[in-house]
């Protein structure tokens, strides 16, 4: 009998298939950062070759960064919410309405600091409204977002009217350069630190992964979700400020559809919009840059904007499919 045991054990270990190797790679610690960054670099190199060496130039790259800034900031902001498994696609409209309040404050006071402060606070207050509906009344965040989109959009149209609201463009020009970059870098660095180096991000990921388990581990779900919305509010407020500074005016369609752009950026950056263990705070920004690279590159190649929309839709669908978590082991592994 002992011989049988020995014979059984000395047999070869089965060879790993391609899918096994992919699975191992996906579980590596640095994968969520390295993979989307590699894809972004690859895309840039491909466009550089296809455009005959015109893509990887300082001007184009600066343009890409500037264009990514607003969506990227909002994507970083909502990553806190997405991580918990909640979805809020009203952020574009929140940003728009916050910018409207900011510009209106400027028109009354002609003070840029007050405008920035009002935009910030409005962004945060509106996000906290969304949060309160979810946390206090237990309404699903996606439903809140649908209602919020319509309400905030209606308010924006009502307040702006037919003519765009304007601020002094000269002052915008002054603030457009370094202020924007410094504000963004501070926010980005702050989010990365708070998300990845404190308990905040860990708790959010735990809630997104299994809310019941998080509760039993002493994590207060409501408290964490409020924290997530506060961080999101700061980011959306900042995006509102960046939006004003970019054009010096706010039209009634501001922010419309941007919620979807943010979602696309998040997914392109390699994060699941279903949240959970593999979420992070940087995916959204990488994704936003990737979307801009894609748009800019295709435009430089002469592809029509309609086709670009179609290409984006296909990539989005593909990535959502790839990102959705499926069991690689037993489908019945969920315990009762």
């Amino acid at each position: 009998m002992e011989q049988i045991s020995q014979q059984a054990i000395v047999k070869d270990i089965p060879r790993l298939g391609l899918m096994d190797r992919i699975d191992i790679m996906k579980n590596k610690r640095g994968f969520p950062l390295v993979f989307p960054l590699s894809m972004l670099a690859l895309l840039a190199v491909i466009f550089h070759i296809l455009t005959g060496g015109e893509f990887l130039t300082l001007n184009v790259l600066k343009g890409v960064f500037n264009q990514s800034l607003i969506v990227g900031t909002m994507a970083i902001a909502v990553s806190f919410i997405y991580t918990t498994g909640n979805i809020d696609f009203s952020v574009g409209n929140v940003m728009g309405l916050a910018a409207v309040f900011g510009v209106m404050a400027y028109q009354v006071t002609e003070n840029m600091a007050i405008m920035i402060l009002v935009t910030f606070l409005s962004g945060m207050a509106l996000m906290m409204c969304n949060c309160a509906l979810g946390v206090i009344f237990h309404i699903k965040s996606a439903r809140v977002a649908v209602v919020a989109m319509s309400v905030y959009s209606a308010f924006t149209v009502f307040l702006v009217g037919a003519e765009p609201l304007k601020v002094d463009y000269k002052i915008c020009k002054v603030l457009e350069g370094n202020f924007r970059y410094i504000a963004f870098i501070l926010y980005f660095a702050g989010c990365i630190l708070m998300y990845h180096k404190t308990a905040i991000g860990r708790k959010l990921r735990f809630i997104g992964g299994n809310a019941v388990c998080a509760k039993q581990t002493g994590i207060n779900e409501n408290e964490s979700i409020v924290t997530a919305f506060i961080f999101a509010g700061i980011g959306v407020g900042l995006a509102g400020v960046l939006q004003i500074l970019r054009t010096g005016s706010i039209a009634q369609g501001v922010g419309t559809g941007m919620g979807m752009d943010v979602m696309l950026a998040t997914v392109l950056g390699g994060m699941s919009i279903f949240g959970g263990a593999k979420s992070n705070a940087y995916a959204g920004f990488i994704g936003a840059v990737t979307v801009t690279v894609l748009n800019r590159g295709l435009l430089m190649l002469g592809v029509s904007s309609t086709l670009i929309q179609g290409a984006r839709a296909i990539i989005f669908l593909l990535l959502v499919f790839m990102n959705s978590e499926r069991q690689s082991t037993l489908p019945s592994r969920q315990q009762f």
Partner: peptide, 23 residues
């Protein structure tokens, strides 16, 4: 109910263990 209540199945082993040790 181990799988549904005591663990985050998609999270790494380490993240599950350290969930009690943030402080």
């Amino acid at each position: 109910n181990r799988d549904t209540e005591s663990l985050v199945m998609n999270a790494p082993i380490g993240a599950n263990i350290s969930s009690t040790g943030y402080k």
